[in-house]
């Protein structure tokens, strides 16, 4: 390795090792420690002339229905939200690609703009819309469509809606990048050969956009699984998601070892999809 390369790589490499990799090793370490009263609230692993490692935090997670349900719940919410985001996002991306050239930039910016504004405030905005005496219920009742307010907030519906809303741009952007690369001549050829628009879409456009779909699905699913703000603000007492449980273990129960074990378990769960992200992003980069 030449000196020049070392000069470029060394600093960011050291930074990422120190502030990205080493922290995980510490999380792993503390997940094997006992909870203790004091600062910091966990027992040292090394000391008293030996190594004191415990698997009790993991046994707790695997044995307690609350944690298992929170993991399964997070996966279920994230999977449904990803599917809905694909159904809404695909026509949006497809429509932008097929819109007249001069409109495309504006339409694309309209998709990106919400992403630049505060995530927290966008989630909060739904509270005003969905709550019992909120805007949606008010509108539906004044139109005479419903007699009593619908329960729209603090349930599964509002959590999934929040996840779809929060991460929709992450679905649309890779889909757009992929669909934009599609050669229109392929569709003309399909049409010349007698394919109806739907058949051409199903046999040409859809298969060729699969890498974009894969990238979008990963970018929506992974952060959704670990989401905290949405289940906290839009969820109800029955909303069990692992990101929120981890937060509560840490901030409310001050149980650092269990919070660490939850983080390790979540990382193991997400390791495979996270490993695929870089490959998919490279494939769809414009």
């Amino acid at each position: 390795m030449s000196l020049r390369r070392v000069g470029v790589v060394a600093m960011p490499y050291a930074w990422l090792l120190a502030f990205f990799l080493v922290p995980f090793l510490i999380v792993l370490k503390i997940s094997l420690a006992h909870q203790a009263t004091g600062i910091p609230p966990y027992t040292p692993l090394f000391g008293d002339g030996g190594i004191r490692v415990t698997g009790e935090n993991y046994a707790l997670i695997a044995g307690d229905a609350l944690y298992v349900k929170a993991f399964l719940g997070a996966i279920r919410y994230a999977a449904i939200a990803t599917a809905v985001a694909l159904v809404i996002g695909y026509p949006l991306a497809y429509g932008i690609v097929r819109a007249p050239q001069r409109r495309r930039g504006l339409l694309l910016m309209l998709v990106i703009l919400p992403f630049w504004t505060s995530f927290l405030i966008r989630v909060y905005a739904w509270i005003g819309l969905l709550k019992e005496n909120g805007i949606v219920n008010h509108a539906l009742m004044s139109l005479g469509l419903i007699g009593a307010p619908l329960p729209l907030l603090n349930n599964d519906f509002s959590v999934i809606l929040g996840l779809v809303y929060g991460y929709l741009p992450f679905m649309v952007l890779p889909l757009y990048a992929q669909l934009e690369k599609l050669d229109p001549a392929l569709l003309e050829a399909a049409s010349d050969l007698g394919a109806r628009p739907y058949a051409a879409f199903r046999q040409v456009t859809l298969p060729l956009s699969l890498p974009g779909i894969a990238a979008g699905v990963l970018l929506v699913f992974i952060p959704s699984v670990g989401e905290f703000v949405i289940p906290d603000l839009l969820g109800g007492p029955n909303t069990l998601m692992i990101g929120k449980i981890l937060w509560d273990e840490f901030f409310t129960n001050r149980d650092w070892p269990v919070a660490s074990a939850l983080a390790v378990a979540m990382l193991i769960l997400l390791a495979l999809p996270m490993g695929l992200v870089r490959r998919q992003l490279r494939g769809t980069a414009p």
Binding site: F20, L218, G226, F228, G243, L246, A263, M274
Partner: peptide, 9 residues
């Protein structure tokens, strides 16, 4: 990895 790393972790 930080692109998609859950914030809580």
């Amino acid at each position: 990895a930080p692109l998609v790393m859950p914030d809580v972790i």
